[in-house]
Each structure stands twice: as structure tokens, then as C-alpha cells.
Amino acid sequence: MGFLKKMMAAIGVGNASVDAQVHHNAVRVGGQVTGVVVIRGGAIEQRIERINLGLATRYKTDDSYMTHQLSKEQVVPGFTLRPGEVREFPFSIAVPLNTPLSLPGTQVWLATDADIAGAVDPGDQDHLQILPSSEAETLIAAAQRLGFTLSGSEVEYHHGQIVQELAFRPPYGQYKIAEIEMMMFPSRGGLDVILEVDRRATGMASFFVSEFEQKGRWHLGAQTLAGGPDAVARELEVRIRALM
């Protein structure tokens, strides 16, 4: 009977279960995901080698989507789990600064990776709502103060890191552009911003050029951010018009 139970556990039947229970699903970039890992013993005694937690997302490639592990750390050390035993381990892991915001088409989840001797991985996934840092929230609010509307986002992989591009549509008739796109990178207490202006040609020019884009990089410092969305909106508008 013992041999049969071990064989069944190896294919996931009667195996230990691992459940990462998050205290709050909504977390800010740069904050902490807290909760408790609940481990329940199965039909046989098993050795828990380690349990890792981390954040993961997906990014777009030319023809598909790829899963990317944003972070990973051990939260439960090795121990022996008796049949039917229940153990709980509190955890707190950081939300990396490059974690994409939760917007339509973008998913971020807490990935549980369990290493249990002689068994399949019983890990699970818990989806999170990622909110912007205070700096990014101020910049987004500044764009909205100028009348821009957030129209979409896309997560990509560039130069060894995950980046998220936010697209905004301008208010009707105020800017001769189709949209602006921004990528934000935390830097020295502020933000490094790549601003891209997408302008479609109008009139006779449209026969020769359908659209073109111009990009600018600028550092949004802590002093300007301290002035709130109004101060950032003034600088943002200058940057947009310089690229038009």
C-alpha cells in the first residue's frame, strides 16, 4: 500500500498541496505583496525541499506571447511534511520597479514554485492588480489634466528588461497628433521618461507620408513631481509640442 501511495503522489494524486494566500491583491509598484503560504500534507510523508514565490507577466513578441519571471525568491525552507499535516508560512516579497501596471491586455500574477521530492509541482498562480508608483501616477494624472485619455498599453522585452508602453489619445482639436506613448523608468527619486509622439499627416502631405513618429527622452525630477499633476502637466505639454 505504501508503494502505491508513493506512485500516486508522484503523478499528483494524494500529493501535498500548496496555496499562497495573498492579503491584498491590489499592490503598488515598489510595494510589498504579503500573505501566507498554506501547505497541506497528502497521503504520504513528503520532503518539501523549498517553496519559491515571485511575480510573473507576459510580453508580446512578433507572433506570440512569452511568460517572463519578474522576480523569484525562497520563502519556505526545507522540511518534512507528515500525512495530513497543515503548515503555514507568512511571506512578504517586493513588487519590482519594472512590474507592468494592470491594464487591459496585461496580466501579472504571483507564481508559486514548489520543489517536493518525488512529486509533481503543486504550485499555483494568483493574479494581482498592479497599481502605479506615486511618481508614475502623477505623470498619468498630468496627461489626463491636458485632456489625454489612456487608450491602451503593451508589454515588451527590450535590452534584457520588461518595459510597458502606455498610449494616450489627445483631446479633439488641441494637438495635431494621433497619440502619445510613454515608457517610464524609475531613476534618482524621479522618472526617466521616453515620450513618443505619433503624428499622422493631413491634407496634401497625406499622399506622400501616412504617419511619422518622433521620440524624446527626459528626466522628470523629484522637484517637479512634488508640484503635483499641474506642475508635471506644464512640463509634459512643453515636451509634447517640442516633438510635434
Rank of each mutant, 00 (worst) to 15 (best):
D198G: 04
G78L: 06
Q174E: 10
Q69L: 11
P96Q: 14
T202H: 06
P100N: 15
S151G: 09
S153L: 08
A167S: 15
V193K: 08
M183D: 04
P83G: 09
V108A: 10
F148H: 11
I177A: 01
R199A: 05
I130R: 05
A143Q: 10
G105Q: 14
G189T: 06
A94M: 09
V76I: 03
A141W: 07
S102F: 08
T138A: 03
G190N: 00
H127A: 10
G190Y: 04
I162A: 15
E179V: 02
A141N: 10
V163N: 11
E181A: 12
F79W: 12
P171Q: 13
P90A: 03
Y175M: 06
T138P: 04
A94I: 13
S92W: 01
E179G: 14
Q129P: 06
G173I: 06
Y172T: 07
I93K: 06
G173Y: 04
A143R: 12
G189Q: 04
G147S: 11
L195S: 05
A201M: 03
F89T: 04
T149W: 09
Q144D: 04
V95Y: 07
Q164W: 12
T149S: 12
R145I: 06
S151M: 00
E165N: 12
P77A: 12
I140R: 15
V86H: 03
R82G: 11
E85N: 02
I194P: 01
Q164T: 12
A119M: 03
A141G: 03
P96D: 13
V163D: 11
T202Y: 03
L195W: 03
L81F: 10
M182K: 05
V76P: 07
R199K: 07
S71Q: 09
E88F: 00
P122N: 05
S134V: 13
I180H: 08
Y175K: 01
G173F: 01
Q125P: 04
G78T: 03
D115L: 03
P186E: 05
S102E: 08
E181W: 02
H68I: 10
V163P: 00
Q164G: 15
R87H: 14
P132F: 09
A167W: 11
A201W: 07
G152H: 15
L146G: 06
V155C: 14
F148D: 10
S133W: 05
T202E: 01
F185N: 08
F185P: 08
P132N: 11
G152W: 14
D126F: 00
D121W: 05
G123E: 08
M184W: 07
R169K: 15
P83Y: 15
I140A: 11
V95S: 11
S151P: 02
T80W: 14
P186G: 09
S134E: 12
F79S: 00
D192Q: 11
L139Y: 06
S71V: 07
V197S: 05
G189L: 00
E181S: 14
P83D: 10
T106M: 09
T202G: 00
R188A: 08
S92F: 08
G160Y: 12
L139S: 00
Y175A: 02
A178G: 12
G189F: 02
